[in-house]
Design a protein around this nucleic acid. Structure first.
Length: 324
DNA sequence: GGTAGACCTGGACGC
DNA sequence: GCGTCCAGGTCTACC
């Protein structure tokens, strides 16, 4: 079946929620401003499929695949799309967030975009550390082009290669990652993370344990910070990507926001502590309050994120933006 | 317990 | 063009 429908929660707003976190601008994701369509190639059982997703007003998501999917292919794709758009997040949880932070109640904003897999979220987090945004954009593009499965014949032009899965990245040579994907010193760290996140490998991490809401936040944080290339910022960011919003991943951009918008002063570490304290009243939802507040700030300058072209505004979207 | 310096890349800047 | 400097988290070594 090349096209099928997927119902969404009542609060879900496709253009707004697909474009609610910077990763929507990173390959293999592609957002078409003109068509309000999300396109990317997925590696699925039976091979790659280029997938285009739209949501005409008042209807379920319309999911078009460039090739026929069997039952397992369709089920697999559905699970990946649900994870990306966080369709499984309970509406009651969103309401609880709005009770704590009523600024977003009227619009219903609450869901954040993420990757279809934890592995891709981890790689995107590591490739966003210690680099400027255009470099992150470049690394993700190269990882897909060099290691990802190509789109099947007849796929839409904007559908590039899929994101490489953990097994593929785990087999890559450090020199390949460094020379062709331009990831620099992250080469070995990425390979080691891929080995830990490839479920087929002995000694792989138990991803279900990380995703399980019953696992305490502190234990998840402690486990993440043990991993190579994952420090306090990356661990907190992976936690929000796992739906654990109590910690703020504070980078230099967060510090800049603390200084210029919230008016805090002092060393970076002092400003970080003040920003943490500022958002503490939002408790288990702190990251959403922090992020939507910053996002609103960007959107006030550049218009709604769903109008950002990946190759123009989307490239400018960087820490330096706040100082302009 | 905290912190100085190295790690890489791409972009900005000076010549 | 070509060289130099800088931004950006994490890690290691050293207090």
């Amino acid at each position: 079946v090349p096209t099928f429908r997927l119902p969404t929660p009542a609060d879900f707003h496709f253009a707004r929620d697909a474009c609610s976190y910077g990763y929507f601008l990173l390959a293999p994701n592609h957002w078409s401003v003109h068509d309000r369509a999300f396109t990317r190639t997925f590696s699925l059982p039976g091979g790659a499929a280029a997938v285009r997703i739209t949501q005409p007003r008042g209807t379920p998501l319309l999911i078009f695949s460039s090739r026929s999917l069997g039952g397992p292919g369709r089920a697999g794709l559905t699970a990946l799309v649900r994870r990306m758009f966080r369709l499984d997040e309970d509406e009651a949880t969103i309401r609880a967030f709005h009770r704590l932070d009523p600024r977003w109640r009227r619009s219903g904003r609450g869901r954040l975009f993420r990757s279809p897999t934890l592995f891709e979220d981890v790689v995107k987090t590591v490739t966003s550390c210690n680099v400027t945004w255009p470099n992150t954009v470049h690394m993700n593009r190269r990882l897909c082009d060099v290691l990802g499965e190509p789109p099947p014949p007849g796929a839409p032009l904007e559908a590039g290669h899929a994101f490489p899965d953990a097994a593929r990245l785990a087999r890559a040579r450090p020199q390949t990652l460094r020379a062709r994907c331009r990831v620099g010193y992250r080469d070995r760290r990425l390979i080691e993370l891929a080995r830990l996140l490839d479920p087929a490998r002995r000694g792989a991490l138990d991803q279900a344990w990380f995703e399980d809401p019953a696992t305490p936040d502190q234990q998840v944080y402690d486990a993440l910070i043990e991993l190579t290339g994952i420090g306090p910022y990356a661990a907190a960011n992976i936690m929000q990507l796992l739906g654990r919003y109590s910690r703020l991943p504070l980078d230099t951009e967060g510090v800049r926001y603390g200084r210029t918008v919230l008016g805090y002063a002092g060393s970076p570490a002092q400003v970080m502590r003040q920003v943490q304290a500022h958002f503490q009243p939002f408790g288990a939802h702190a990251f959403r309050s922090y992020w939507f507040e910053m996002w609103r700030f960007y959107e006030a300058k550049h218009g709604p994120a769903h109008t950002w072209e990946r190759d123009s505004t989307g490239r400018l979207f960087t820490a330096a933006l706040l100082s302009k």
